[in-house]
Design a protein around this nucleic acid. Structure first.
Lengths: 347, 347
DNA sequence: ATGAAAGCGCTAACAA
DNA sequence: TTGTTAGCGCTTTCAT
């Protein structure tokens, strides 16, 4: 149970040539068999398979793609917010589900909303010659997109659509969804509403703010009545921000938390202040177990699996020849009323 | 904004040769510059960098690894339960965090506790010549491990340790943790305790059951008092199972849900029956927002980030030459009392 | 400090 | 139906 292992390295790389020798055929015949090409007799194929088993041979896809006419590596690059995040996980799963059936492997990386990480991740993907990319960007105008076009590598942006970039994208309508959430609060009589959002240089955060401002504007609520706190990025900072609001002179009667981690922080702060049944809360993005909290947390939910599913379909359609204009798919959001968003303002 | 894109394919692959020609140097000099090898004059290096920029050249790592003496692809394969799952996500994030700094990319796949998926994922990794593997297995004795050894590819098992396999592993002590959770309930006076667990052919589920049985046995509770429901795999089946228990002749006074999705199902069922404050519940694995539920959900929490962190360290140590015996790391679990596990049995 | 030639494991093109 | 040759883009080796 505890003997030592051989050192790591290319011990005894079995090659196609060795398989061919053992099977008594030419190397090209082995290639034909392993790639299911026609014109191989059943007997020969069997001999090849026997040799493959005997030597425990595994085809080298990398070497193959080097010479292959289309240069495909049967590989995709996926860049998401963070692989440790339910929203990203659902996108990832959708991509994998579509890729695995086609024999395509997926490289996954986390963005952390860091433009430098973004650049190095994309470079890492390109240097490994991925066939396609599915990207979340932290930039308004990613500068690497022109190289993608020149290389003919299909890329689809998910979650955030960069400005003036003519590549496919799959997003939610953040502005509309934020508008809907805010209107939901206004309809219950709220005027003193607080918006808590992520870094304002992120497109999604900005759009959500605009949707919020549209809605309060249309309701005729002066901006002196509302509060907006931007640049929140995690649950802790959001909790602190809400706590500060609650202990201010004129605390809000309703909160719109425009991102899932912010919602978590807001719930914590409301609980700590014992205000979870008196101050309304709507979150952007669903959070796990939101339905089991008391009150349940009302959210406008995105559909990350669907976002990933459509994105990977876009990639494959381009790989299969589609060369038309960029498609900008908007995946619908859903307002899920669970209680917290239906609280009315205290008199 | 809506012009059409070029078709996907190897349009205009820029090669090192072209960079060399433009810079007026030999191809080997370009290689030296791009790989930071010594013995290149500053002036020459500059000319190469200029040419690289002008042509927007990206090194082909795949082609390089083909000839490279150690054959490394700077690539890792990661197989987790499901990329869409917080436990897996934390492992994944830890692996990525360690890999990204070393310029190593990570292939991620989902197991879904399906042995066939496991086999095809491992084969996909091997055919892409990953330098190392971090694997969750659905088998007690994965048969592919011998090939891994022959190939000198370091592999580390996470979450579940296969029987009689002499490869590194990083796991939690499931039996001990389950014992602790069960004893926690026994100490509050519970005797009629229900265990709800995953498929009994999974090592972790089996170990958790054994820990449970140990604990009730040691407490002198006859097995006629307890109930065990195995083969639960998702929240829905768990919810149905708990609902059935609650409406039985002699419902349990406490529940030990031995997996995170089962815990979610159990919470739902207890809520539906209005029993969340009268029947005790302890879960295995932490669940998001468990602290915000009422009552808070008591759990024995694993530390998936730490599991991933140690696993990837094991892989790198082997890649860097460690050739000693297999290391079997056990990462501690933590019992987090939040209320649900401290409920006492009704008289 | 630099470059020419060989060859990594495979597929493409063509010959038999 | 099968095999032979060349060559994918790079790193190695060895020469200069």
């Amino acid at each position: 149970m505890s003997s030592s292992q051989p050192p790591a390295g290319r011990e005894s790389r079995v090659t196609m040539k060795q398989v061919a020798a053992l099977a008594g055929v030419g190397i090209k015949t082995v290639s034909r068999v392993l790639n299911n090409e026609p014109n191989v007799s059943v007997k020969t194929a069997e001999r090849v398979h026997d040799a493959v088993r005997a030597l425990d041979y595994q085809l080298d896809l990398q070497a193959g793609s080097l010479r292959r006419i289309d240069g495909r590596t049967r590989t995709l690059g996926l860049l998401v917010g963070s692989v440790d995040n339910p929203f990203s996980g659902a996108i990832h799963r959708a991509v994998e589900d579509a890729a695995v059936g086609r024999g395509i492997a997926v490289f996954a990386s986390s963005l952390d909303d860091d433009p430098r990480r973004e650049e190095s991740a994309v470079r890492a993907f390109l240097q490994r010659r991925v066939d396609g990319l599915i990207l979340t960007t932290a930039r308004r105008r990613p500068d690497y997109v022109t190289s993608l076009g020149d290389r003919g590598i299909p890329a689809v942006f998910v979650d955030r659509r960069p400005i003036d970039v003519d590549l496919d994208s799959v997003t939610s309508d953040n502005r509309e969804a934020a508008h809907r959430a805010t209107t939901h609060l206004v309809a219950r009589g709220h005027r003193r509403i607080a918006l808590l959002a992520d870094r304002s240089d992120l497109q999604t955060a900005d759009e959500r703010r605009q949707g919020f401002l549209d809605a309060v504007g249309r309701a005729g609520i002066p901006t002196t009545e509302t509060v907006t706190v931007m640049d929140l990025h995690d649950a802790n900072s959001a909790e602190a921000a809400v706590a500060a609001l609650l202990s201010s002179d004129r605390p809000p009667t309703a909160i719109f938390s425009a991102q899932n981690l912010i919602t978590v922080g807001a719930v914590h702060a409301l609980r700590a202040a014992g205000a979870q049944r008196s101050i309304a809360l709507i979150g952007f993005d669903d959070i796990p177990l939101a339905d089991l909290l008391e009150p349940g947390v009302t959210v406008v939910a995105q559909d990350p699996y669907e976002i990933g599913r459509v994105a990977v379909e876009h990639v494959f359609s381009r790989l299969e020849g589609y060369a038309g204009p960029a498609r900008h798919t908007v995946v619908p959001t859903t307002l899920i009323a669970r209680g917290s968003g239906e609280i009315e303002p205290a008199r």
